[in-house]
Simulated scan of single mutants.
Amino acid sequence: MGVNAPINRKLRMGLVGGGQGSFIGRVHSIAACLDNRAELVAGALSSNPQRAKQSAPDYDIADNRAYGSYEEMFDAESKLPDDTRIDFVSITTPNHTHFEIAKAAVEAGFNVICDKPMTFDLAQAEELQKAVEESDVVFAVSHNYTGYPLVRQAREMILSGELGEIQAVRAQYIQGWLRTKLEAEEQKQAAWRTDPSKSGAAGAFGDIATHAYNLGRYMTGLLPEQVSCHLKTFVEGRQLDDYGTAVIRYQNGGLGTVTASQISHGRENDVVIEIDGTKGALQWRQENPNEMIVRQNGEPHKIYTRDPNAPYTNASGAAASRLPAGHPEAFFEAFANVYTAAFDAMVQRAEGGSPARRDTVYPNVYDGVEGMYFIQQCVASSDQDAAWLPLQHDAARK
């Protein structure tokens, strides 16, 4: 069977962002190509045209497809023959640029994989949703934690009722890298993430709490109803929050919490989610991603390991695994699982099909809108002394 059957070729990738000094651009390029289903052939790697072209050799992009801007790339690639032009665009730039790039890509007919949060604000997200709905493109948002095998294992267990009715969700994302004011030292990643003109209305909550919130939505399928949030800026002189906690009321009567910190000493990238149901509970931790704990009163605790061949591994967990048990899979592979699910839809589109838009394995444009609504309502709630505000949005999964 050929690569990406039935089209029997690799999908061609165009990268926006990812120039010299970028972290996430390199992650996207590796993840996209990990399963030999795509190749990076073009790029607009920086908002600075000179730096964009200088960065191209780092990705082995040919000179004639190293563009000085995303506008130039979309225009030039659209004029290339069908068997040459890019199939999809990966957007790995700061938040405030996502909307204009993504909308231009959609309108040019290119599939899109956009880093999170999807846009700068909710209005942009809703406009982008409309643009996607008016097109036939595949649009994915890189909430990469949804790609871990045991997260997908847990999702299938929960949605099939193994844990009973879900009553509580506790999600946290704890880091410590912004304990000092790195933005004052012109550290690139800190500078734009703490700048409201580039990051948006939220700092830590926009950057990482969106991951924790999305993880709970993805794994449980619970629809949110209301949110009460406290955001805090502990580092003196910082413009955006670096710590916060939100309480969520779900439509089924359950409760959830989302806590995010970027100022906790010694914490690296500690994403943890605990889910309580009437029949059992589970816990998963990103820093130890190949194990999941399942608990039931009166029984020994069970440790599920990532094992695609084990009888307890369901179809979703097995499909997300590449290696036998005991060979750790982690960050790049999870990112690649988001890509490969989107690739399946892209291939279907290339064959003239109509891929699903909602309830996809990969996070989609509706999830992106929900994430922006979550940020907006959390900031508004915090400004009103943690007032309870609506968290229902039409983009929510049906």
Score class of each variant (00 low, 15 high):
residue 206 G to T: 00
residue 239 Q to G: 01
residue 368 G to N: 03
residue 31 A to T: 00
residue 193 R to P: 02
residue 260 A to E: 08
residue 21 G to T: 07
residue 245 T to V: 13
residue 392 Q to I: 11
residue 182 L to W: 10
residue 374 F to P: 05
residue 15 L to A: 08
residue 396 A to F: 08
residue 272 V to C: 11
residue 88 F to Q: 05
residue 21 G to E: 10
residue 224 P to Y: 04
residue 226 Q to W: 06
residue 168 A to I: 07
residue 15 L to I: 00
residue 88 F to M: 06
residue 148 Y to F: 15
residue 123 A to Q: 13
residue 24 I to Y: 15
residue 217 R to Y: 04
residue 320 A to E: 09
residue 281 A to E: 13
residue 15 L to V: 00
residue 85 R to A: 13
residue 55 S to M: 12
residue 213 Y to H: 15
residue 370 E to F: 07
residue 203 G to D: 05
residue 214 N to D: 15
residue 131 A to G: 03
residue 100 E to G: 08
residue 294 V to P: 01
residue 324 P to V: 00
residue 26 R to P: 01
residue 304 Y to R: 10
residue 254 G to R: 07
residue 13 M to R: 02
residue 311 P to H: 09
residue 174 I to D: 07
residue 72 E to P: 00
residue 92 T to R: 06
residue 339 Y to N: 02
residue 160 S to R: 07
residue 209 A to N: 10
residue 148 Y to W: 10
residue 176 G to S: 07
residue 106 V to A: 14
residue 303 I to A: 10
residue 27 V to F: 03
residue 239 Q to H: 12
residue 197 S to I: 01
residue 209 A to G: 09
residue 254 G to D: 04
residue 293 I to S: 10
residue 105 A to I: 00
residue 97 T to F: 11
residue 366 Y to L: 08
residue 89 V to M: 12
residue 362 Y to C: 00
residue 275 I to D: 12
residue 353 G to L: 06
residue 364 N to C: 09
residue 276 D to H: 14
residue 240 L to R: 11
residue 82 D to C: 03
residue 243 Y to S: 12
residue 278 T to H: 03
residue 255 L to F: 08
residue 33 C to D: 00
residue 139 F to D: 06
residue 315 A to Y: 05
residue 262 Q to M: 13
residue 155 R to T: 04
residue 366 Y to N: 15
residue 218 Y to S: 04
residue 120 F to S: 04
residue 85 R to H: 15
residue 204 A to V: 15
residue 60 D to L: 07
residue 186 E to G: 06
residue 134 E to Y: 10
residue 233 T to C: 11
residue 280 G to F: 02
residue 133 E to P: 01
residue 51 R to S: 13
residue 213 Y to W: 15
residue 205 F to T: 03
residue 55 S to G: 14
residue 272 V to W: 12
residue 255 L to M: 12
residue 232 K to S: 13
residue 187 Q to N: 14
residue 172 Q to V: 04
residue 193 R to L: 14
residue 157 M to N: 14
